[in-house]
Amino acid sequence: MRYVMESTDEARRLLVQERTGNAREALLLTGLQQGDRVLDAGCGPGGITEMIAELVGPTGHVTGLDLSEERLAQARQVNQRHAHVRFQPADVRRTGLPDAAFDYTWCQFVLQYVPDRWDALAELARVTRRGGKIVVSEFDGFGLGNWPCPEPLREWCLRFTDALQRTVGLDVHVGRKVFHAMRQMGLAQVRVHLLPQYVIAGTADASTYLDWETRFSALEPAVAPLLGGLEDYRGMCQKYLELLADPDALKYSVLLVTEGIRP
């Protein structure tokens, strides 16, 4: 499985995203407790793993999984002071971990990229103990919540997200689908929490602007050919960046944090 967002700046972007987002609130909302054995599935550079390690304390244990050895190396560096954390390379669809090994399984911004995402969800449930919790945090309609938004740009954004789905299987609406998938899988007490991923009332800060520049650059080879070619693609990306800089425009995105219990 190829990670479509890969770039020379991706580790930095992910770590900033992990540390400035609402992961801590989501972890607490969904019942993470001291002493829990936790799986961070798709841990990236380990920013959220670090939060989990602090919340479960030294009586707990955290396992971080990722396909990228580069990400895991950074995650080990970020978490070097936590003796109760370990990392290993693995695919979330086939972790190789034993059944019922964890009290709490966390997965954020991973299923959107996985083509057979519900197989991955079933694997996360398998490695969670009976009575344990599986938590999936995903956005819904990422990058589409903007007002005012000129019609040509709004239409391009829809074509952009459709191109992502067709070329690399990235689903920007996966967040709304997890509740149904967990119910169909037979998980119990399935609940959904709605959190802001970001709210930008006015001009975006430099970090957000850079985040979007990095995204557009990484996705260019896959998506530009379907959106009129390189020149048109870069021109519309610039229009979106101008919208981010507009002091009179609202930009927002939501997270759907879905939790279920393995019966």
Score class of each variant (00 low, 15 high):
residue 59 T to G: 08
residue 8 T to S: 13
residue 71 R to L: 14
residue 67 L to Y: 13
residue 154 R to C: 08
residue 74 Q to L: 13
residue 88 Q to L: 10
residue 257 V to Y: 04
residue 145 G to D: 13
residue 41 A to H: 02
residue 188 A to Y: 11
residue 187 L to C: 04
residue 195 L to S: 00
residue 172 V to I: 10
residue 252 Y to R: 07
residue 78 V to E: 02
residue 45 P to N: 04
residue 182 M to T: 01
residue 143 G to A: 13
residue 36 D to T: 02
residue 254 V to S: 13
residue 107 C to G: 05
residue 85 V to L: 02
residue 38 V to P: 00
residue 93 R to L: 10
residue 197 Q to C: 14
residue 207 S to I: 15
residue 253 S to E: 11
residue 157 C to F: 15
residue 180 H to T: 15
residue 155 E to L: 06
residue 249 A to P: 05
residue 190 V to E: 11
residue 137 S to A: 10
residue 36 D to C: 08
residue 28 L to K: 04
residue 183 R to K: 15
residue 95 T to F: 07
residue 23 A to L: 03
residue 246 D to P: 03
residue 82 H to F: 12
residue 191 R to H: 11
residue 57 G to L: 04
residue 164 L to T: 07
residue 255 L to M: 14
residue 79 N to I: 02
residue 242 E to L: 13
residue 74 Q to E: 15
residue 154 R to W: 14
residue 171 D to A: 04
residue 61 H to W: 14
residue 215 R to N: 15
residue 166 R to V: 08
residue 241 L to N: 00
residue 15 L to I: 07
residue 244 L to A: 01
residue 122 A to I: 02
residue 53 A to Y: 01
residue 92 V to D: 00
residue 223 V to G: 10
residue 263 P to K: 00
residue 185 M to G: 06
residue 187 L to Y: 03
residue 242 E to P: 06
residue 148 P to C: 00
residue 81 R to W: 11
residue 166 R to L: 11
residue 74 Q to T: 14
residue 236 M to E: 12
residue 40 D to F: 02
residue 101 A to P: 07
residue 80 Q to K: 15
residue 171 D to S: 13
residue 257 V to G: 07
residue 130 R to P: 15
residue 170 L to T: 11
residue 33 Q to R: 13
residue 56 V to Q: 01
residue 188 A to C: 14
residue 152 P to R: 04
residue 181 A to H: 10
residue 78 V to L: 02
residue 54 E to T: 10
residue 64 G to M: 01
residue 68 S to M: 09
residue 176 R to I: 01
residue 30 T to Q: 13
residue 174 V to A: 12
residue 94 R to D: 13
residue 131 G to L: 05
residue 150 P to Y: 02
residue 49 T to M: 04
residue 261 I to Y: 11
residue 89 P to K: 12
residue 199 V to T: 03
residue 10 E to N: 09
residue 101 A to S: 12
residue 24 R to M: 06
residue 108 Q to G: 01
residue 53 A to Q: 00
residue 223 V to N: 04
residue 46 G to H: 04
residue 109 F to G: 10
residue 97 L to Q: 13
residue 49 T to Y: 03
residue 74 Q to Y: 12
residue 187 L to D: 01
residue 234 R to M: 06
residue 248 D to Y: 14
residue 104 Y to N: 02
residue 134 I to T: 06
residue 65 L to T: 07
residue 50 E to T: 05
residue 22 N to T: 12
residue 219 L to G: 07
residue 193 H to D: 08
residue 97 L to E: 10
